[in-house]
Design a protein around this nucleic acid. Structure first.
Lengths: 110, 110
DNA sequence: ATAGATACTATCAAAAAAGATACTAAGGAG
DNA sequence: CTCCTTAGTATCTTTTTTGATAGTATCTAT
């Protein structure tokens, strides 16, 4: 998700700076699962059975780059990599909670 | 944003049903602006200078279809069309507020 | 020696979203 | 009669995202 001329919209919309974080097909879902606890790669995969390994890796790397997700590699064989939220990542929870509540309401009307 | 096999993830993730609403490059931004008041098409366009007319229309129609945005057509020439949030749409505000707060914190660390 | 586990990476193809551009309707102003 | 305005539509192309598939490394257990 590429956003150009960001400045113009940012000037008027306070949430557009994080648009690329919340956009994306799986990011919010990944954040939801990680908000519930540390997960290793294979566990996340099981929770997202319709995301390919390649896609999941890519998304996680993005979230890591944005400093929302922490990636901990254990030097073991077979490999073990744990994903968790960073400090700012955990602060995202209220958004997820609000969204969860709204989703419930939304589903009631439809 | 097409999501197949939704059931599987929905079972575990309460927010995935609305993933297609919050995903999309401009939806959240559109919702933000509309949460501040009724806007006619041209006004929204001015607030989103880097979205083409075609894209904006497409997004608005989607949000309308999802029953989050109401479209009011005035039988005038030149045409006048006003966009506003539906009842469930206005209830989305807490999400935007939470997100706005998080965005501020997020920008402080980066 | 071989198979198994985990977390990748690298290509390539497909699909989806977004953008560019041009065109339309219809009444009012000049 | 012609231009202007607003809110579109209709195509086509480009970009971006996602998926499918196959391959890699390395230690352990058999």
């Amino acid at each position: 998700m590429k956003i150009e001329n960001e400045e113009e919209i940012i000037a008027q919309c306070p949430i557009s700076p994080v648009q690329k974080i919340i956009g994306g097909k799986w990011n919010m879902v990944i954040l939801y699962f990680l908000s519930q606890g540390v997960l290793r790669f294979s566990e996340l995969q099981r929770k997202l059975p319709n995301v390919t390994q390649a896609s999941l890796t890519k998304q996680l790397r993005l979230l890591e780059e944005y400093k929302i997700v922490h990636r901990e590699v254990y030097k073991q064989v077979p490999p073990k990599v744990e994903y968790s939220l960073t400090e700012i990542g955990t602060k995202f929870s209220p958004v997820l909670t609000a969204l969860e509540e709204w989703t419930t309401k939304y589903q009631e009307i439809d």
